[in-house]
Amino acid sequence: MTIVTEETTVDVVRKATRDLARSFDLEYWRQKDKKAEYPREFVKAFADGGWLGLIIPEEYGGLGLGMTEAAVMLYEISASGAANSGASAIHFSIFPPAPIINFGSEEMKKQWLPKIASGEILMCFGVTEPTAGVDTSRIRTMAKKVDGGWVVNGQKVWISNAQNADKILLLARTSPRDDANPLDGMTIFFTDLNRDHVTIREIEKCGRSALDSNELFIDDLPVRDDEVVGEVGKGFQYLIDGLNPERIVVAMEQIGIGRAAMDIAVQYAKDRVVFDRPIGKNQAVAHPLADSWIRLEAAERMAMHAATLFDTQQRCGKEAAAAKFLGAEAGFEACNRAMSTLGGYAYSKEYHVERLWRECRLQLNAPFSQEMVLNFVSHNVLKMPRSY
């Protein structure tokens, strides 16, 4: 008897985005990395397929799908060998628009969400600052109230996609920091990335070269009142609302990179003959790869569990944090073991492993370091004294 199962939305998303992502081969990404060139063709292909609007509600031109589908899509992009250069380019249509979707005015949603979904405009996310680090309460970018709007001055760092972005979702202080309530008094603005008032300097870096990272110097940037997202002073609360989705998709991206590296390493271990035998016959080669397979599987299950909790409107903070921790660790370790498997050839760009290794290392530090995950879990889950 043949059992017929109905294809789920997740299955459809997985197959379609896998096929689309893999239509851009490893050589495409090697050249983008080498030239530090934005993957316009790749982004356009996903825009043309409607995938940039995956989580944007249908009434605003999107697909209206959930975090589970988003996680699967970004996994497939990374696993294709696009790694963070491809995943991050699409990621900017999944995570940053969330405050607009959840807290923006109806006019803002109608005007901008369809353009984000279609790829007509590109955006960046301006939160981190050089003097604040992970303590967002200490950002110094200030928005001063004037007639009809605001004037913003300050500095941002590690702002991805600013070289190509039309708009910026910008976090700024609208009142001084209060030690009693340090996370109050910040506001999110969605405004033009006006080059007359914002100097953008690209940061040279070791990985994810196809997607730019930048310093922003903001000098008297004018912002209208209708460009405030939600209520003045509640920006950090709106930001927190999107952190769990970010951790989930980052976890899946790193798992995908780890799997891409594993595919290369396993095939190499089968084909490479030393001392008249495939090196894959040696347990010193096979066992680390087997261990990484297990860890990647476990990390994926935690990430998908967190995505399911989020989509069913259940609390998922500890699961999302754990998924990010496991995904970053398992993904990088898989890349590291792939480097060891290929030996000297791992340093050849022809095999692509060194690029995956470079790109995967970032997520051990950002956007939520492994140490901060452990701080969060020890304090909020285990109820131990706060250590940070």
Rank of each mutant, 00 (worst) to 15 (best):
S105Y: 05
E106L: 03
E107S: 10
M108K: 12
Q111Y: 12
Q111N: 12
A117H: 11
A117L: 09
A117D: 08
S118G: 10
G119S: 10
G119D: 00
E120T: 14
I121W: 07
I121V: 15
I121C: 09
L122T: 05
V127A: 03
V127G: 04
T128A: 14
T128C: 11
E129V: 04
E129I: 01
A132I: 00
A132P: 04
G133I: 00
G133A: 01
G133C: 03
G133H: 11
G133F: 05
V134R: 12
D135R: 14
T136C: 01
T136G: 00
T136Q: 09
T136L: 06
S137G: 11
R138G: 02
I139F: 01
M142K: 14
M142T: 07
A143Q: 07
A143Y: 06
A143H: 08
K144T: 05
K145L: 00
V146T: 02
D147F: 14
G148V: 08
G149P: 05
G149E: 06
G149I: 08
G149R: 00
G149L: 07
W150F: 15
W150L: 06
V151R: 06
V152T: 11
Q155E: 13
Q155N: 09
K156T: 01
I159T: 02
I159L: 07
I159H: 00
S160M: 08
N161F: 09
N161I: 08
A165R: 07
A165E: 03
I168H: 07
L169M: 00
L170W: 00
L170P: 02
R173M: 05
T174N: 03
S175C: 09
S175A: 11
A180G: 10
A180C: 07
N181Q: 13
D184M: 08
G185W: 05
T187H: 08
T187V: 04
I188A: 04
F189D: 01
F189I: 04
F190G: 06
T191S: 10
T191L: 07
D192W: 15
D192A: 15
L193T: 02
L193P: 05
N194Y: 11
N194A: 15
N194V: 02
N194Q: 13
N194T: 08
R195T: 12
R195Q: 14
R195N: 15
H197M: 11
T199L: 13
T199H: 10
T199I: 05
R201E: 15
R201A: 15
E202A: 14
I203R: 10
I203N: 10
E204W: 11
E204G: 10
K205R: 11
K205M: 00
C206A: 15
C206H: 15
R208H: 07
L211Y: 01
D212I: 09
S213C: 13
S213A: 15
N214W: 04
E215I: 14
E215S: 10
F217A: 06
D219P: 09
D220A: 14
L221Q: 08
P222W: 12
V223P: 06
R224I: 07
D225C: 09
D225F: 11
E227T: 05
V228K: 03
V229N: 02
G230P: 01
V232P: 03
G233V: 01
G233I: 01
G235W: 04
F236Y: 12
F236N: 02
F236V: 06
Y238W: 10
L239A: 06
G242Q: 15
L243H: 12
P245N: 12
P245A: 14
E246I: 10
I248W: 04
V249T: 13
V250W: 09
V250M: 13
A251K: 06
M252Q: 11
